[in-house]
């Protein structure tokens, strides 16, 4: 085993609760949406952590916490040893150069009134001290080339580009300050298959060239498998299973991971007969009122009385050496 490098990002017990209030004049807090409820993980330089889970499980909220676009309720997050959650604005701004984000929706995340050159060069305005010496235009052109766009496109507006091209613009902007970590929140979900592959390949190439670490959020488990070194599976604000991509995909031990993997449609009609889909009944419960004990128990086919009273910790289980938050963790291979 090679020596593990120090994590570039370490998240400890991150929590984000959105208050639910009633009353317009004097709002009273009557509860909280527990969007992120105690999430911990490490991200090492140059690696990709895939974050998966159903809609509403807290993936985007976690991303926004790390970017400090939302203020954390509790927890700590160390970027290169500095606690992002406790930092003052000035220090935060400087540190934030090291971590950038690419948004899901290439249609709404770019300002339609700015030219591509302005969009990609904007980080230099916000962080003048990080601007490249010399000509800003040249830097922008280089960034465009790096993401496979023609430098002649610099003076056009976002609406003149296709979804895939807009996503490239977003990536170019994220690269401007030479970050070490990029959080990609569903970067290819809005794209067509044929274009999606181009963007995934671009992200992989940039990672190789620049040594970037990615947090790659997606609901498409096939794309995540493709790009990730390690995986974290989220359910109702918590990580329920985590490990290397092979551990989570080939040797899942948490019933939720197993169900999620089994439901992924397989682009092979001959697999129909072989496939066994684990049918989850019902929907994800409201994060304002998560079930007691194990949060998955309302949909879990293995639930026992203990699951309602005792919350299973995310810890290593006897069946396979990777953490799983299930009292009855068992190996069940879903992918052939």
């Amino acid at each position: 085993m090679p020596v593990m490098p120090e994590p570039i990002l370490r998240v400890e017990n991150a929590v984000k609760h959105f208050p639910i209030t009633r009353g317009v004049v004097v709002p009273r807090k009557i509860g909280a949406v527990k969007a992120v409820d105690g999430v911990s993980f490490d991200l090492r330089p140059g690696e990709t952590l895939g974050l998966v889970g159903e809609s509403g499980c807290g993936k985007s909220t976690l991303a926004k916490l790390l970017m400090r676009l939302e203020s954390p309720t509790a927890g700590r997050a160390f970027l290169k040893g500095h606690d992002l959650f406790r930092m003052r604005a000035g220090d935060l701004r400087r540190l934030r150069r090291s971590m950038q984000m690419v948004m899901q929706d290439p249609y709404t995340s770019l300002n339609p009134r700015m030219t591509v050159a302005d969009i990609v060069g904007e980080p230099f305005e916000i962080h003048p001290d990080a601007a490249p010496p010399g000509n800003r235009d040249r830097a922008v052109r280089e960034l465009l080339e790096q993401v496979g766009l023609s430098p002649e496109h610099a003076n056009r507006y976002p609406h003149q580009f296709s979804g895939g091209q807009r996503q490239r613009i977003g990536i170019a902007r994220a690269l401007a300050l030479r970050p070490e970590v990029i959080i990609c929140d569903e970067p290819v979900s809005a794209l067509d298959v044929s274009v999606q592959a181009q963007v995934v390949n671009l992200l992989e190439r940039l990672q190789d060239e620049l040594g970037l670490a990615y947090i790659f959020i997606a609901h498409d488990l096939s794309v995540v498998r493709h790009i990730s070194d390690r995986i974290a599976v989220m359910y109702l604000g918590r990580i329920v299973e985590t490990g290397t991509a092979d551990q989570v995909y080939l040797r899942p031990t948490h019933p939720y991971t197993q169900a999620l993997l089994s439901a992924v449609p397989v682009p092979d009609p001959t697999a129909r007969a072989r496939r066994q889909i684990i049918r989850l009944s019902g929907d994800v419960p409201s994060p304002a009122d998560p079930p007691s004990g194990c949060r998955f128990r309302t949909r879990c086919w293995k639930a026992q009385p203990r699951c309602a009273s005792e919350e299973p910790p995310l810890s290593q289980r006897a069946v396979d050496p990777h953490p799983s938050a299930c009292h009855y963790a068992e190996l069940h291979q879903v992918i052939a």
């Binding site: 639910i20 509403g56 985007s60 709404t108 304002a288």
Partner: peptide, 26 residues
């Protein structure tokens, strides 16, 4: 950092989640 221009497409703004339909609290 984030621009939200609802006039473009049917995509939801970033804060709305990924347009997956589930909208607890919204």
């Amino acid at each position: 950092m984030t621009y939200q221009y609802p006039s473009h497409g049917q995509g939801q703004g970033y804060g709305q989640g990924s347009g997956q339909g589930q909208s607890y609290g919204h």
